[in-house]
Structures are given as structure tokens and as C-alpha cells.
């Protein structure tokens, strides 16, 4: 690697990760002032774990992420199977577009339109509506990840299973799904992080008593940043990193020839 390439890479990484690094460093700051270093301390983590409302929000976030990721994984996998294994059907192109569209849709638009829908349906806004909204957001991502694997999955494996007397359901259960499992798991983790991260859509569709962690943090920041927020954010970064690495590890493993 040339000196220029190294420098460019270094600057790029600095640009991407310097803010996060600062956040992580200041979460261990003994001082109560965010921008003044007062020595190493874990006290903000201690305070964090005493903060009842924040912990409650974290719990809500985890529950929402789990539920919405499960729904998105189910729907996304079904969509991928329909797109990848049902041959050509009427409206296939349209369906493909419809599955992908929520991924590029501005979150404000998604949030607003979901809000209008929930109001129109007379649904009580709360944890349930956030789950539905996040599932909507993540289904397309799961579909894309699963479909990518399905496209490279040797179709003769499914034909061989059918040839050996397995009906369509048994082929799906014993051959297709097991071979897609890493991609499905990766899709689940992706959906989980998307939900965990989301502030915009959740803000639109949440109701009383349904405050997610990002919403809680955001409202606290408006009152002023304190190192406790840094600590909470650091933990979120750590969790998301672990999940993202697991997802890419799952995708890379069993790389199907």
C-alpha cells in the first residue's frame, strides 16, 4: 500500500470513527463536564444502571427490537422465497420494487405515513405500533439479505430433494431453509439493529408509556449532554458492533459455492 493510500485510509477512518471514539473516551470521564477530561472513571456507568427511566426505555427498545425483528424475518424470508423461487409471476417486478422501496424511503415519510395509517385505523399508539413500524422498515432488508443467498443457492439441491420424493413443504423445511439459515439469522440481526437504532419512525408512531432508548436519550440531550448519555451510547455502540460483526460472520461462513 502506498503512503498516499495509507493516508487516505487513515483520514477516512478518522472521519468516520473520531466522533465515536470521542464519545467512548468521554464516557469514562470522571468530570461531570462533557468536554473537560477529569481522569478515568466508571462512575457514569454506575449512575446509568441506577437510572430507572433510562433502563425502562432500554428494556422497551430490546423488546421492540426482538418482536419487530422476528416479524420482519418471517415476512422478509417469505418475500425472498416468493421472489427467488416462484418463477415469473404477474406483478413480480412491481412486488420486487415494493419490497425494496421502504429501504430508500425517507424515514420521516415512513414515520408520517404509518402515523396517519394508525390514526386512521384507530389503533392505540404504543409499543405495538412501534413494533409494526419497525417490522415494516426492516422487512425489505431481510428480504434482500435472504434473496442474495437464495440466488446463489444451487437449485439442483432442491430438485434433488423433490426427485427423492420430498413434497414442496419437505423440500423447504429440510433443504432450502437449513441452507438459508445463516442468511436468515443475519437478516434477523440486521432487523434487530435497525429497530434498536431508530429514532425518527419511533418518534412518529409511539404513544404514552412507549419511550424507546433512542427517544429517551434524545430527549435528555435536549436538556443538556451529560457523561451518562455517553456511557449509554457507548454501550449501544458496543451492542450494535457485536451484532453487526455476528451478522457479517454468519454471511461469510458456509459461503456456498
Amino acid at each position: 500500500m502506498s503512503l498516499f493510500s495509507r493516508a487516505a485510509l487513515g483520514l477516512g477512518l478518522l472521519f468516520l470513527y473520531a466522533p465515536i471514539a470521542a464519545l467512548v473516551v468521554y464516557s469514562f470521564n470522571a468530570s461531570a463536564l462533557v468536554t473537560v477530561w477529569g481522569g478515568f472513571s466508571l462512575k457514569w456507568y454506575g449512575i446509568l444502571f441506577q437510572d430507572g427511566p433510562l433502563l425502562a426505555a432500554a428494556l422497551i427498545s430490546l423488546r421492540v427490537a426482538l418482536a419487530s425483528a422476528l416479524i420482519a424475518t418471517l415476512l422478509g424470508t417469505l418475500a425472498a422465497l416468493a421472489l427467488g423461487r416462484s418463477g415469473r409471476f404477474l406483478g413480480r417486478l412491481l412486488f420486487t420494487g415494493l419490497v425494496y422501496a421502504p429501504m430508500v424511503m425517507p424515514e420521516v415519510v415512513t414515520g408520517l405515513s404509518l402515523l396517519l395509517l394508525f390514526v386512521g385505523l384507530g389503533l392505540d399508539r404504543g409499543v405495538g405500533t412501534i413494533v409494526i413500524a419497525h417490522a415494516t422498515l426492516a422487512t425489505g432488508f431481510v428480504a434482500v439479505v435472504v434473496l442474495a443467498r437464495l440466488r446463489v443457492l444451487d437449485q439442483s439441491l432442491e430438485e434433488a430433494a423433490a426427485d427423492l420424493g420430498a413434497g414442496p413443504f419437505r423440500v423447504l423445511a429440510t433443504v432450502t431453509l437449513p441452507l438459508l439459515a445463516p442468511a436468515i439469522a443475519a437478516g434477523f440481526l440486521l432487523a434487530f439493529t435497525l429497530s434498536l437504532d431508530d429514532l425518527v419512525v419511533a418518534s412518529f408512531v409511539s404513544g404514552p408509556g412507549a419511550t424507546t432508548l433512542p427517544m429517551r436519550l434524545y430527549s435528555q440531550v435536549r436538556l443538556g449532554v451529560n457523561p451518562e448519555i455517553n456511557a449509554a451510547s457507548t454501550l449501544i455502540v458496543a451492542l450494535v458492533t457485536v451484532i453487526a460483526l455476528s451478522a457479517s460472520w454468519l454471511m461469510a461462513r458456509h459461503q456456498y459455492r
Binding site: 439441491l157 434433488a160 426427485d163 420430498a166 456456498y256
Partner: peptide, 19 residues
């Protein structure tokens, strides 16, 4: 359908179930 036919096939690249 294929799964009801009393014939079997050996595939070109074998199509062994890798899992």
C-alpha cells in the same frame, strides 16, 4: 410432479446436501 414419479435422477454435479 417430480416427487411422485417412480424415477430418480443423479445430478451432474451430484447435488449432495451439504448440510
Amino acid at each position: 410432479p417430480p416427487h411422485r414419479r417412480p424415477v430418480n435422477m443423479m445430478f451432474q454435479f451430484y447435488a449432495l446436501f451439504p448440510h
